[in-house]
Amino acid sequence: MSMMEYLAYAAFGLYLFLIVAGGLAAVLSKNLIRSLVGLIMTLFGVAGMYFLMSAPFIALMQILIYVGAVSVLIFFAIMLTRAPGGESGIEGSTPKALKRGLLALATALMPAVILGAIIIRKTPETLPLKPETALTVLGEFLTGPFALSFELISVVLFVAMAGAVLLGFERRKSE
């Protein structure tokens, strides 16, 4: 194994740790902002995974849009709704809370167990890493075979924006 291969494994481990630790932090912390930081960690880990799969464009878009814009908007929403302490309504270790926690754990583990069983049964072949797809090819795919889904996404965005503008105007009228 060459040096770069070792590094790739190390990077994989690091990203995996970021994803799992971020997810746990997002779920377990009682403070909304800390949860958000956990979410950001997970998003970073996923972006790193995209890099490892030689899809740098998607990785950078993940950082630009999810980390740079969406999580900042979530932060803004938290600040505007005035949840400074962000205490969520979790009671201590009552039996009810324990039961709830166990149920949550079971729900979270179920897909992992099923998927893990399938992967252990039928180990997929390791495919050689494909070279980086050129941006022009990606663009042609988006406007060619995937044009319909691409346009549908833009319709969703348009509806969201139109709704926001409409709500803003209605509020101004009522004032």
Binding site: I33, P56, L60, I63, V72, L135
Partner: peptide
């Protein structure tokens, strides 16, 4: 890097996140 410009834009957008965390914490 083929995507150098996007790399710079993506990582400069992280600064505001740091400012938010600083201000809130």
């Amino acid at each position: 890097m083929n995507l150098g410009l996007i790399l710079i834009l993506a990582f400069t957008s992280l600064n505001v996140l740091a400012l938010c965390l600083a201000g809130w914490s």
